[in-house]
Amino acid sequence: MEPLQILREEPISRLGELPLSTVSPEQTMRDAVAVMRDARRGCVLICRYKMPVGVVTERDVLKRLGASQSLDVPVSAVSTGEVWAVKRSDSLAHAISMMTSHQCRHLPVVGERGEAVGILSVRRIVRALVELFPTAIYNLPPVTLPIRKEREGA
């Protein structure tokens, strides 16, 4: 199949299990930071009864820190309350379009009843592109860069 056709037709569920980190609306920003750090993710979903009601990203946290505001406030007070979710059955192309049009790095993925089932990150999309187009991406002129075992930095 043509790569573009794959993007247009294959559902998000093709990517397999996606990570999901959640907090409840009453938990504090500090709790959300702890969850992000443990999971090494830049985004947690605010869920009430498994339904996503908001998103907290690392940028929200850093904005508060940069402005010397406390992290001991409920996440619901900080989150914008807008959730751009995608369904597990939506195409990868749809997810990419959503990220592009809303300029976000993470999208909550929901199941049939609207329950949160995962978070799709822009990084996972890049992984998918690399997996879809191995000819273009792996067969590049050799470079003499060390391959790092751990992710680090940017």
Binding site: R123, V130, L145
Partner: peptide, 30 residues
């Protein structure tokens, strides 16, 4: 606190190269 010796790309490198580097290292920025 910075990460030293960052992986960089040149402006003429193909996009595929940047994509590959990001995927390999898990970087969000180059």
């Amino acid at each position: 606190l910075m990460t030293t010796e960052p992986v960089t790309v040149e402006a003429d490198a193909p996009i595929a190269f940047a994509l590959h580097q990001m995927d390999l290292g898990g970087y969000r920025h180059l």
